[in-house]
């Protein structure tokens, strides 16, 4: 059902973008000319470059550093490549947590119903009324570990609700279908029904929501990093690079524009994919 979506060229473009960004983040670091935290102080900060009027050496100034250095003389290319890993890890793992939780809750409540259904759906309503970023910054400030995995889990725990709702509705719909009813009456176990009939049917919406979730995770991570509550310092992420680069915005705009562009590319790609998939599933919204 959802696979029809691949024919929409927006999905294709989005996919190409996402694959490109992911490739940059996964494969890029192997080809990275330098480690992200090596400081090339002699080459990129030396000769009083910052002290007089200069910026950390820019493009073409220094061989071997095609994008120049940042405030600490670290290779910007290497940091972009490694930073992508962090940002995309947050996007994928965070979405994975949210999708898993959403699927479990959605299918359970949709299939079983009853008191747990009502309770969990109430929880969904409740969590949707929480101010996301306020809770997120409070958690980050209190936990203060700035660990990437705790960040993923927190973002995931705050974002599963919409997915659960949609999966639940879909599950209820599938459960009501005649052939599923027939399978039930023939004594198929609930687990079997869920896996053979429900899961394939809910995967479509899950793909759609999963992609836009990934986009919002990237945005959330960069916002947290911008507010100074993201991953711990030595590790680069696009968001934290942007924050660090702001220090030199007037002098070396590339320190802000490059990570900003990467964020934009990734978010754009995921959004485009989600958009295309949705329209393919529900042509009404063309």
């Amino acid at each position: 059902m959802g696979w029809r979506g691949w024919r929409d060229s927006r999905v294709l473009v989005g996919l190409v973008l996402v694959v490109a960004v992911v490739a940059v983040a996964v494969v890029g670091p192997w080809f990275s000319p330098h480690a992200p935290d090596t400081q090339f102080r002699e080459q990129l900060l030396g000769n009083g470059a910052l002290g007089t009027r200069g910026i950390p050496a820019g493009i073409g100034d220094v061989t071997g550093h095609p994008l120049g250095g940042d405030t600490l003389g670290r290779d910007v290319l290497a940091r972009l490549l490694h930073g992508g890993r962090v940002s995309l890890t947050v996007a994928f793992v965070g979405s994975l947590v949210a999708v898993t939780l959403g699927l479990l809750v959605g299918m359970y409540t949709g299939y079983v119903g009853g008191a747990w259904d009502r309770l969990l759906m109430r929880l969904v309503d409740l969590m949707l009324s929480l101010p996301f970023l306020l809770i997120a910054i409070a958690v980050q400030a209190v936990v203060a570990s700035s660990n990437i995995w705790s960040l993923c889990i927190m973002l995931g725990l705050l974002s599963w609700m919409t997915l659960a709702r949609i999966v639940r509705a879909k599950t209820q719909q599938v459960k009501g279908l005649e052939y599923v009813q027939a399978a039930r009456s023939m004594g198929a176990s609930p687990v079997r029904i869920v896996f053979t009939h429900v899961l394939p049917n809910v995967l479509g919406p899950v793909w759609i929501l999963g992609t836009s979730l990934a986009a919002s995770m990237i945005l959330a991570e960069s916002a947290l990093s911008y507010l100074g509550l993201g991953v711990a310092p030595p590790t680069p992420s696009w968001g934290s690079m942007l924050r660090e680069g702001q220090e030199l915005l007037g002098y070396a705009p590339r320190l802000v524009l490059l990570p900003g562009l990467m964020i934009l590319l990734a978010v754009f790609g995921f959004n485009l994919m989600g958009e295309g998939l949705r329209d393919a599933q529900d042509p009404r919204h063309g």
Binding site: S9, V13, I55, G58, I59, L67, G68, G250, Y251, A252, P253, R254, L257, L258, L261, L264, L265, F268
Partner: peptide
């Protein structure tokens, strides 16, 4: 796609050419 590419290339160029 075209719009996006143009915007992307433009921003890249701006980013690279610095001040």
């Amino acid at each position: 796609l075209a719009l996006f590419l143009v915007a992307g290339l433009g921003a890249t160029a701006l980013g690279l050419c610095d001040r």
